[in-house]
Design a protein around this nucleic acid. Sequence first.
DNA 1: ATTAAATGCTACAAGATTGTGGCATAAAAT
DNA 2: ATTTTATGCCACAATCTTGTAGCATTTAAT
Lengths: 137, 137
Amino acid sequence: MKLTKTSEYALRILSFMARKPEELYPARHLVEQLKISDKYLRRLMTDLSKAGFIRSIKGREGGYVFAKNISEIHLSQIIDAVEGMEKYMGCVLGFGECSDDNPCVMHESWLPMREKLMNVLNNKTLADFNYNKINKY
Amino acid sequence: MKLTKTSEYALRILSFMARKPEELYPARHLVEQLKISDKYLRRLMTDLSKAGFIRSIKGREGGYVFAKNISEIHLSQIIDAVEGMEKYMGCVLGFGECSDDNPCVMHESWLPMREKLMNVLNNKTLADFNYNKINKY
DNA sequence: ATTAAATGCTACAAGATTGTGGCATAAAAT
DNA sequence: ATTTTATGCCACAATCTTGTAGCATTTAAT
Ligand code: SF4
Ligand code: SF4
C-alpha cells in the first residue's frame, strides 16, 4: 500500500500542523521538523493554499496557518489537492470499470478492501488523529 | 490505493492465465488479450519465470505455463517478484518505524486498514479468484 | 528608505518507472 | 538444412515524479 511521496509529504505536513492547529508555521520550521526539502515543501504548500486548507502569510513573521477547521479537511481532499485522487480510484488491474455487472477476476477479493480504504480517506479528517500519544518526528 | 503498473500487469497476466491454469499461453496471445506492450510483457514474464511461478517454453509452439499450483501463488509473492514488496510495507507518512510504542499521528486510523490490505495480499492466492463470473478483458 | 526574513513562481535537473528496438537463442515444421 | 515462430536479453528512449536553483515579491523591523 503506497501513496506517492507527494501525498505522503502533504499528509505529514498537515498532520504535523494539526497538532497545534492555531499556530503559525514558517516553512523553515516545517522543513527542519519534517525533513522535506525546502523548495519542494513550499511548492506543496502553495497547492495546499490554493485548495483552501491553509493560508500563507508573506513577508517577515510570515508562514502558514490553517484556513479552515481541521475537522473539515478530509484525507481524500488532501490527496486530491496535491496529485489528484483519480489515480487511487481506478481498478487495481488497470481497467477502468468496476461494477458488480462487469466484475474482473479480482472483484470479490479486492473490492471490499478498496471500499475500506476509500472510507478511511473520505471520512477521516485531520481532526480524527490521535494527538494524545507522543509522536516522534 | 495504487499498485504500480508493473504490479498491475503482473496480476492481470497471472489472473488471466489462472482461468485455465493448464493451458499454454504464448506471449502474442497474452498481449492481444491484455493490451500490454509485447516487449514489456515479455520482460515481466521473465521475472515471473525466475520467481518460479511460470515456466517458459522456447521455440515454435512455445509460450508460458504455470510451474506450480496456482493455489500456492500468493499475491504478495507476485508483487514481490516484479518490483519488491518492501515498498508497500513501509509507513504511509514515509517514516520507517511503525509500532504501538512509537505511533505516528495516523497510527490509529491507518494501521487497521493497512493490516487488512496485507492480509489480502498475503493470504489470497491466484486460486482464490472467482472464475465463475464472466470477465471481460 | 533599507534591510531582513519570509513566501511565490518558473524553469530546469535528477531519478525512477515504463516502453521500445534490435538481435541472439531455441525448437518445431518443412 | 532452412525456415518459421517462439522466448531472452541488453541497451536505449520516453515519460512521470521528485528535487533544486534563482530570482521576484511581500511585510515587519530598524
Ligand atoms: S474489483 Fe476488479 S474490476 Fe473492480 S476495480 Fe478491482 S480489479 Fe478492477
Ligand atoms: S501507523 Fe503511523 S507509524 Fe505506522 S506506518 Fe502508518 S503512518 Fe507510519
